[in-house]
Design a protein around this nucleic acid. Structure first.
Lengths: 334, 334
DNA sequence: GTGAAAGCGCTAACAT
DNA sequence: ATGTTAGCGCTTTCAC
């Protein structure tokens, strides 16, 4: 499978390689109309396609960015990815998506491989490890924007949800509806995943604001496979919570499974609000009240920040964190 | 951002570029133990990472494959993708995923860009257009495996579901449960999307097998945005179907929305079976009976076929279609 | 055991 | 207006 090169086109059309190159890069300022046509035909006849690898080597740009998500299973990740792809597409950039699977080791491998592949920049949903690596990237000025989670001590441009507000919104709504014993269940916070920590923080603050005492028994943060046991435990407390806040979509689904298994009624037995709007929220029985993140806007913002950083050579370095507001979607589960 | 090259490492360790290259490619057969160490240190000190773009240019292989799915919104697509990624990872290949969004034009662009990017092979869920392009690829021997849908007249290795069997399974189950007026709703079959066509075919055959007359009023194939109207129509027939088969996950969700909106009961008012097992099937109220595809196995198979095709230079060319068996998961919606 | 040199396909001065 | 030339960073004979 020997490929057709620019040299073949040049020969076929009786011009030099450089002229063909000019043509390919639409620099036909002073190019003879006839030459242009000859080249056009040659390309057509030969079915020639430029080799992007060679071009990238020369130009030191692959017009490709990488995005590494901590966990692709979150609907939020996929929504953000689609927005990023859209923006990149507008800028004629390609996108390579990798899933770190919540594993800092995998994250590290992907960062290194994308770097080796010479992607022009990275959008990362950090897993929470790899501090040293990030420090190095910071120093090397590698175009990087952080999404969803914050990296302590490291000032990269970042796009995140106002996670405290998200939890607050939910608690406020529970209280509005007359609930005062409210639990929160979220996935594990070993490695200090900031959104989860912040959501718990927001939950506590909101409770205090309403003069409701915070009970540690009502707060659980653990791996999905331990949800059932934890739920069992929490709901068999002498005074069990009457309302449950799911810290994210995966947590919500575990809770729903449990509720189904135990034939509990929503909201009579437990009221429910989930952070993240799941695909089936509107037509679940009952319809699920949710706090939704503006995933699309967030993805757009992250991509725009990165594009700017890549194009501005070493222009104004934006290290701000861009915080987006969540929104409560009222339905029937609370 | 000038990058560190092999030359820098060579200088730093007082050897030539080629020796460093040997080292990088683990060809230290005759390499001095000491040289090895010096290189190792130099690489460490400089933080050198090989430039994959340059390597690819020379080696004419990017150890990357592309996968183009017709529509990423189908859960099936994402499951298959994950399996493909796993297999590729084992073979030290990377994967670039593109979403054609059911648009043959986009499909074409992606094929061309992936080709230009010199990916070593392609797995495609065809949108149904681009016959000429595929014919050309066939001729050029480009490593390609087809997934999910068949391409008429074109013999590529393919991995698909036994779609007729899938519909049959559902109809059989309906009949078992005493239903004899059964409708089917699926997304549009303009462009002759083979799975949809075959599912309808399987549905009809199964009906005939059971001696139930096929009614055209009970068969609808259209875009998602027209589902509501079509459902309205079908269920207001003088003799409406009492059971509904959803042709895929997206169709199922539309049906569920409609049912919710009209406050219909499942299965009392309509029984329901969906082809594709959705994430929430097990904990929906009621739990959803489904015909599931072995998505993971199918993805694995496709990836393995492609890897073989890529590695076997021009070895045995497998043009078989590999057909997988669906499985009925019995729950409460029928 | 290690090095020199050519070349992968393309671009970009610089000539002409 | 078009051609010549020198690399981009790496791999790979072939010498030494």
């Amino acid at each position: 499978m020997k490929s057709i090169t620019i040299a073949d086109v040049a020969k076929q059309s009786n011009v030099s390689k450089s002229t063909v190159s000019q043509y390919l890069n639409q620099r036909y300022q002073y190019m003879g109309e006839e030459t242009k046509l000859r080249i056009e035909n040659a390309i057509e006849e030969l079915g020639y396609r430029p080799n992007i690898v060679a071009r990238s080597l020369k130009q030191k740009s692959t017009t490709t960015i990488g995005v590494i998500v901590a966990n692709i299973l979150h609907a939020f990740s996929t929504q953000v990815i689609r927005a990023i792809e859209d923006v990149c597409h507008e800028h004629d950039f390609h996108t390579i998506v990798c899933n770190a699977d919540d594993d800092p080791e995998k994250e590290k491998n992907y960062i290194e491989m994308l770097h080796a592949k010479q992607v022009d920049g990275l959008i990362i949903f950090p897993t929470g490890g790899n501090t040293a690596l990030f420090k190095r990237m910071k120093k090397s000025q590698y175009p990087l924007v952080i999404m969803d989670r914050l990296l302590e001590d490291l000032a990269f441009p970042a796009v995140i949800l106002d996670n405290e507000a998200a939890a607050s919104l939910a608690v406020d709504h529970f209280v509005d509806r007359g609930y005062r014993s409210i639990g929160i269940m979220t996935t594990s916070i070993t490695r200090n995943i900031t959104p989860r920590v912040d959501r718990i923080k927001g939950y506590k603050k909101a409770l205090e604001k309403h003069g409701i005492p915070v009970k540690d028994d009502y707060i659980r943060s653990l791996d999905l496979q331990h949800f059932e046991a934890a739920l069992e435990e929490m709901l068999s407390l002498q005074a069990p919570p009457r309302a449950l806040l799911a810290g994210n979509d995966l947590a919500l689904m575990e809770i729903l499974k449990f509720i189904k298994k135990k034939s509990l009624r929503i909201p009579e037995d437990v009221a429910l609000i989930g952070i993240d709007d799941v695909s089936f929220a509107s037509f679940y029985n009952p319809a699920l009240t949710a706090v939704s993140q503006p995933a699309f806007k967030m993805g757009e913002k992250a991509a725009e920040l990165l594009m700017k950083k890549i194009q501005d050579e070493n222009g104004a370095i934006d290290e701000e964190v861009h915080r987006f507001e969540p929104e409560l979607i009222e339905r029937d589960s609370c």
